[in-house]
């Protein structure tokens, strides 16, 4: 090789980097374009009101107090259903993760019931618990239960066996191995499951509130649709999006606090 030439750079890329401004810019651009198209009359207000009209509808809900009533009712149902479903799911899922007999007994039942769309069971729950709150809470709880069971026992499986062997080599009693090794080691998987079940709870609360509910975001959206109030309907959808973001932010904060060792 007599001639000297610089070696061509072929590396770089394929490594996601944080871009703080891009998401904001895209969000502002989409809303701005939507508002502009509405203002120019390109989008019929009857079918797709402008962002400003949706904000105005939300403002009206705040001033007449209906926003608090609807959001409060939905949050109460989500909280109750999610906590009950998660508590039961964790208990059963951890038992299946720890005890072979519990897994052998539980796995066929979970496999059979998990794929059922839980909203299909709402009429059954209404028959069992009545049209009021318990049937809605039961639908959410049941919907949250199975993914939590699966998340918990698969998270137990993912705990490195060498850690359990280490604990046994130091003579830790089985209960201490569960609480000091298995549960903290399974926490990343369990928290990932929480993200999924929070979304499921949000979907189910809206569906459940569309049957026999006076208050709640689902009831509000259904009522706005029946009255052809598309700005109110989209205000309800916006509330759901904000609620989803808030839940995601809370879970993110919990993950950062609990899993700061990662």
């Amino acid at each position: 090789m007599a001639d000297a030439a610089p070696v061509t750079f072929r590396g770089g890329g394929f490594h996601p980097r944080p871009q703080r401004l891009v998401p904001v810019a895209v969000f502002v651009a989409v809303i701005g374009l939507w508002q502009f198209a509405s203002w120019r009359g390109w989008l019929p207000a009857l079918f797709l009101p402008s962002p400003w009209e949706i904000v105005t509808a939300l403002g009206g809900m705040i001033s007449d107090g209906s926003l608090g009533r609807h959001v409060g009712a939905s949050l109460m149902r989500i909280a109750l259903g999610w906590v009950l479903g998660t508590a039961a799911g964790l208990a059963i899922g951890l038992a299946m993760g720890i005890f072979s007999v519990a897994r052998a007994a539980g796995l066929p039942v979970v496999s059979a019931l998990f794929p059922i769309p839980k909203i299909a069971l709402l009429p059954l729950f209404i028959l069992w618990f009545g049209i009021g709150e318990p049937s809605k809470v039961a639908t959410i709880g049941f919907g949250v239960f199975f993914p939590t069971v699966i998340a918990a026992y698969t998270a137990c499986d993912s705990v490195p066996r060498n850690l359990i062997r280490m604990a046994q080599s130091f003579g830790l009693p089985p209960a201490a191995i569960v609480w000091k090794i298995l549960v903290p080691g399974a926490m990343p998987g369990i928290l990932a499951g929480f993200r999924i079940t929070a979304s499921i709870a949000l979907i189910l609360v809206v569906a459940a509130e569309m049957i026999g509910a006076q208050y709640g975001i689902g009831a509000f959206i259904l009522s706005a649709g029946n009255l052809n109030q598309i700005d109110h309907l989209l205000a309800g959808v916006t509330l759901l999006s904000l609620l989803g973001l808030a839940v995601s932010a809370v879970l993110g904060a919990v993950e950062r606090a609990v899993l700061r060792w990662r």
């Binding site: 060498n162 850690l163 062997r165 280490m166 604990a167 080599s169 130091f170 003579g171 830790l172 009693p173 201490a176 000091k180 090794i181 903290p184 080691g185 926490m187 899993l259 060792w261 990662r262």
Partner: peptide
Amino acid sequence: LNPFTYVFQDFALLPWRNVAANVALALEH
């Protein structure tokens, strides 16, 4: 406290515990 004690090839440390707490694990019971 533990007459037969291992040192493992892959260290087998609990990633959620700090150094002192990892060492203390062997004493906690």
